[in-house]
Amino acid sequence: MKYLNLILLSFFFISCSMQSSLENEQVQEDELALQPKRSLPDIIEEQYSSSIGILSYQGVLQSMSNLTGVPITNNRVQVVYNDVKDLLAGTNQLNLYTPSVQQGYMKMAAEFCSEMTKSESLIRNIYPSYSTNNLNIENLVDAFVNKFWAGKANQDTKDSAIEDYSVLLEDFKTQGVRSADLAFSACVGSLAALPVMIY
């Protein structure tokens, strides 16, 4: 169930992000048409890869540990880390944000969140009002997104994600999904997201 949630949420989340991008796409393309032609590598060099990096494999391990409270030496985390380490980025260059890197992030996030949601105290570090009964989904998602994405995205982006994400998790809750699994979904959906991976 956890992994089904994970897959559904991952696709949902990526599509949400892309949808907000697409809304601006036509405008962006119109604006680009008015500018002198530059190659895509030029644009990347000038605007993005020059000032943004992605977490390397060691950075991913430590960052996810910092955010979830699960030690980097946790046995299950170590098994997954050793399995995906070579998939993750070996430098901080943004052009290494490839599907295999994303797959690695996703697996790492899933394991950290799985270990984290075994402990109510760790969940409460993120969402102090966490309870196994009548969980408030919107507050839960709000806590994960705002804490994991702190300093990494504007409030509109976070609010939009929280809103869309909550709708989906409410559905899961209605279907009888346990609170710990809902917390897992909220955790992995926000931990494996782009704002956490870039710095």
Binding site: S20, S21, Y48, G59, N66, P195, I198, Y199
Partner: peptide
């Protein structure tokens, strides 16, 4: 475009997190 949407006006906490991240290559604990 998605990355561009992530850029935003920084608060003092945002600057602190970015400074920490750039120096340590990691994201700080909540």
């Amino acid at each position: 475009i998605l990355i561009a949407s992530i850029s935003f006006a920084q608060t003092s906490e945002d600057i602190a997190i970015k400074m920490y991240s750039r120096l340590t290559e990691s994201i700080p604990a909540t």
